[in-house]
Design a binder for these strands. Structure first.
Length: 110
DNA sequence: CCCGTGACTTCCG
DNA sequence: ACGGAAGCCACGG
């Protein structure tokens, strides 16, 4: 296999789509799963490109603290929280409650 | 080709 | 424990 960097974006998008409903994951976890553990920011960049794809649940991706760091990039500040809460994820102060319980690790569960 | 930016993460003081 | 700074990779200009 010779994955191009373009595929990296595609990989991130694919993983994001695979996130189970009611679960969340972190940029670092995705980066680690893709073998780019040092490139968590690139994952965020990939999500930025994914912003145009409505089939990608970017709201299920948060930073490693469970904070909705990317909510500013959504249409509305509350949208991300609303989406997560509607899926059964409790949010408080831009943070996922019981984060480790809803955390989805692609390296172990995928 | 060089510089700046970004939805992160980790280390040092 | 808290805050600031650096490191990291990819993309656009």
């Amino acid at each position: 296999m010779k994955p191009d960097k373009q595929d990296f974006f595609k990989q991130v998008h694919q993983v994001a789509k695979l996130i189970p409903k009611g679960r969340v994951t972190s940029y670092g976890a995705i980066a680690n799963y893709l073998g780019a553990k040092s490139s968590a920011r690139v994952v965020g960049w990939a999500m930025n490109a994914a912003h145009g794809d409505l089939s990608i649940p970017a709201h299920r991706v948060v930073n490693r603290l469970g904070m909705l760091s990317g909510k500013h990039h959504f249409e509305g500040i509350n949208l991300m929280q609303q989406l997560l809460e509607s899926e059964g994820v409790a949010i408080k102060d831009n943070q996922v409650q019981d984060f480790k319980a809803v955390f989805w690790n692609p390296s172990e569960e995928l």
